[in-house]
């Protein structure tokens, strides 16, 4: 798969209910006020549904930034 940051962006905007949100590969949860632990789960579910993938528990726990999510998506 070749999924880019532009493909992830709309999901973040929708789940975090913030249309002005700009994410980059280096964005971390602490940078975005709406990105709390609850919304993190919604993000995982939304990304899994959109790209028809299933992350492992280990993958989800190892993410440090948006770039890590992209890396796992493109594996």
């Amino acid at each position: 798969m070749d999924i880019k940051i532009e493909d992830l962006s709309p999901i973040f905007c929708e789940v975090l209910e913030n249309d002005d949100l700009l994410i980059t590969e280096s964005t971390v949860a602490a940078d975005v006020p709406e990105w709390d632990s609850l919304n993190h789960i919604y993000l995982v579910v939304a990304i899994e549904k959109q790209f028809k993938v299933k992350f492992t528990t280990h993958q989800i726990q190892s993410w440090k930034c948006v770039g890590d999510i992209l890396t796992d998506l493109n594996k």
């Binding site: 632990s37 789960i41 919604y42 579910v45 299933k54 492992t56 528990t57 989800i60």
Partner: peptide, 15 residues
């Protein structure tokens, strides 16, 4: 979703 159980004590899927 057992991954959610482990990661977030969420025993039921959002769906």
């Amino acid at each position: 979703d057992y991954s959610m159980v482990v990661n977030a004590e969420l025993h039921f899927s959002p769906d």
